[in-house]
Every structure is written in structure tokens, then in C-alpha cells.
Design a protein around this nucleic acid. Structure first.
Lengths: 205, 205
DNA sequence: GCCCGTAAGCTACGCCCATTAGCCAGACGA
DNA sequence: TCGTCTGGCTAATGGGCGTAGCTTACGGGC
């Protein structure tokens, strides 16, 4: 009979903690039963605050995307060009390593059509916009910016994903490998501004 | 009372079909109940052929990794250097687009210690070895090969993952973006062989 | 051609989870 | 003070994995 004083934000907060505690599989292992247990409440009570497990996951995703946007912005403020891109890449990877579960939530793809996922899409777009802003500092032709954003996202995301999944089995220094990748992206993006050919090709003077 | 004539391979085959039919979420949505239904058998009967759902997923992963290794080898035979790397990247992406579910299975990370996953680890290592072989054609110092392999895997995997997850929302030409990324990787790897500095940095003559 | 062991099915069960329906009591505005 | 809204609850359904233990088809040896 006493009230638990829940709210949608409280429920999402508990879910975030569980996702964090669960490592990279935290989001997949997230369960309404666990949320209810840590909230000290029966499972069906959660439906008063959250539409479904899927909806809860989406809310978690929105929060994590907002965090990503915030840390990305913080890392790149006052920087530009290669400096900004390196800082962005580092911030991204740091976030993923500190919060593997949250990072996984970040990758939950919103349905492009579902109206109830508009907030989710917007949060994702905000992160992508930051990448775009950083890359604009390279002075690329507008038509090339999309390609550059995609390459950067793909490179960093791919590395982080493989790192979190323990996909790199050799003990070799991961930090150095990440630097190498980021260097590739930096000079690749820079080249994109210089090479006017229809498809950039490797050119060594 | 009539026998269904199942076998481990038959069960895995059905699972592969279901994974293929389920799109990128096919592996996650794979369920023993569905396998049993399409086999025309009661669910518990599957345990005569497969240890568990997780084990079935691993078997699926092994098959897909073997397919990846085979197509990678086929795509790169008779090529070397940038030519081989481009072919490898293309083959990888094609496989992911033709078989999104199987590609997802490819990314299932084996436990580094569990002895029953040795086959899984070996299959993964075979794919990585092909990447290594391709990159050795660039004449990199041995110490740098690991970094290059990681960068290439990260870049391609990241792109493909984002593409499958519909993570690229703009309608811009994905093929061109992929080419741009591959070009970055090709010239980045080539530069890695030329730059002897402790950490490669972007150099424009 | 019988006989028996193995192995491939089965049913029944236990447990966990999501979700729905419908009840009940506490909090708060009128 | 009364009534309503709301955030809890219990009960129940349906689906999934996995285990136990039974039964029966198949194939090899005599």
C-alpha cells in the first residue's frame, strides 16, 4: 500500500544502471523483471510508466545518445580540423569503454517511420550533426561531407565495437592501433578535400 | 512415430535459413521453437542434436565464418596490394548485404577460454588471417600489420554494420561512400609502410 | 529371421519473462 | 468531506528454454 514514488525518469534511470552493470550485453539482458526488482515493485507496475520493454530500451537509447552528443560537444569545443576529429574519436571511444552497455544502447536503430520514435531519431541526428560540424572544419566540398561523415562513423564505431566484443584477440596495444586508425581517417578526410577526382584514389606524390 | 531424420547439420541448416529469413535481427530472433516447427518436430527433440540455443548459435556462427573465409579467399586470389584489399572489402560488404542475418552471426564473439568454442575461434582466426595475408602484400613492417588489420576490419565492419542497421539515413549514394572509405583504408595502409615514425601522423608533402 | 541395444523422437514439467485485465487504496483537488 | 485520478497490486495468459523420463523405430549380431 505504500507508494514507491516511481516515474518514467526513475524507471529509465534504473534501466540505465542495469545496462551499465551488464557490460556490453547489458542492453540485451535488460529485463522488466530486473528493473521492477531493483525498484522494489511488481513487474506489471512498470507499465504505468513505460509502454513496453522495447519502449524502455528506446528511452535508454535516447538518454545515451544525448550523453554522446554532450561529451562529443565538450571534447571538440574550441578545436577544429584534425585536432577536433582526434578529440571526437577519443571521446567516443572513452565513452564506449567507460559505459559499454550504454554504448550498445547508442547503436539501437530507430525505425525511420514510427512516429513514436521521432525523439530517438532526433537524438541520433544530433550526434551525427556534431560529426558533420567537425568535418566541415576540413573545408570539404559539400558533396563529400556525407562520405566523410560515414567513413568516420564507420571507422570509429567499428573499432569500438570490435574492441568491446573482445574481437581483437592479440594482446598488442589497442591504444596504438586506435591512433593508427584515427590517423588514417584524419588524413583520408584531409585528402578528400584536395582530390577533386570523381573517386578519390590513393596518390603518393 | 515416424522419424524425421534430423542430424546436427540438418538442424544447423534450418537455423541458417531462419537466420537468413530474419534479416539483420535473424540471429537474435532465432528460437528453438521456430527451428523445431520448421523441422516438423517437438522442441525438446532438438536437444538430441544440439546442446542448447547458444550452442546452435555458435554452430551457425562457425558456418558463416567459413563462408566469409571462402568468399574472401575467392575474391582476393590472384590479386595483391590495393587491388586485393579493395576486392576483399567489396566481397565482405556484398556478403553482408546478401545475407544480413548470417553477417550478424559472423560477429558473435567466441569466449576466449571456453574449450567448446575452439572451433569458433579457429574459424574467426581464419578470416582474420586472410586480411593479414592481403595486407602483407603492402610490405608493412611486421609490427604495423596488426594495426593495419585492425583498422581495416574496423572500417569495413563499421560501415557494413551501420548500413545494415539503416544507420545512414540520408539517401546519398552508399556505394560511393563505401568507395571513399575503402580508398582511405588503402592509402592509410600504404602510408603505414612508408612512415617510419613511432606514431604515423598525417603528412602532406 | 529374431533380439536387443542405441538413439531419436515424444509428453509432461518447471522456471522465467512480457504483457493484459481488473482490483484497491492513497493522494489531491473541489 | 467527497470524489476522482493514479500508482500500485494480484491473477492469469502465452511463449520461450531446458530437464526428466518414457517409448519406439532402426540396425547389427546371432
Amino acid at each position: 500500500m505504500p507508494r514507491a514514488g516511481l516515474s518514467r525518469d526513475a524507471v529509465v534511470g534504473i534501466a540505465l544502471d542495469l545496462v551499465d552493470a551488464g557490460g556490453p550485453r547489458g542492453l540485451a539482458d535488460l529485463t522488466l523483471a530486473k528493473v521492477a526488482a531493483t525498484a522494489g515493485v511488481a513487474t506489471p507496475s512498470l507499465y504505468k510508466h513505460v509502454g513496453s520493454l522495447a519502449a524502455l530500451r528506446r528511452h535508454v537509447a535516447v538518454v545515451t545518445l544525448e550523453e554522446m552528443a554532450a561529451t562529443s560537444a565538450a571534447a571538440t569545443v574550441g578545436r577544429s580540423g584534425p585536432d577536433a576529429l582526434r578529440a571526437l574519436a577519443g571521446a567516443w571511444r572513452d565513452y564506449a569503454r567507460e559505459h559499454p552497455g550504454r554504448y550498445a544502447a547508442t547503436q539501437l536503430a530507430p525505425d525511420p517511420d514510427a512516429p513514436e520514435e521521432a525523439e530517438h531519431r532526433a537524438a541520433g541526428a544530433r550526434v551525427v550533426a556534431i560529426v558533420g560540424a567537425v568535418l566541415r572544419g576540413f573545408g570539404l566540398p559539400e558533396a563529400r561531407t556525407v562520405d566523410a561523415v560515414r567513413a568516420v562513423r564507420a571507422g570509429i564505431h567499428g573499432f569500438v565495437t570490435l574492441e568491446l566484443a573482445a574481437g581483437f584477440r592479440l594482446p598488442e596495444d589497442l591504444d596504438r592501433s586506435f591512433d593508427v586508425l584515427v590517423d588514417m581517417l584524419v588524413s583520408g578526410v584531409a585528402d578528400l578535400g584536395d582530390a577533386p577526382a570523381s573517386t578519390a584514389r590513393e596518390e603518393r606524390s
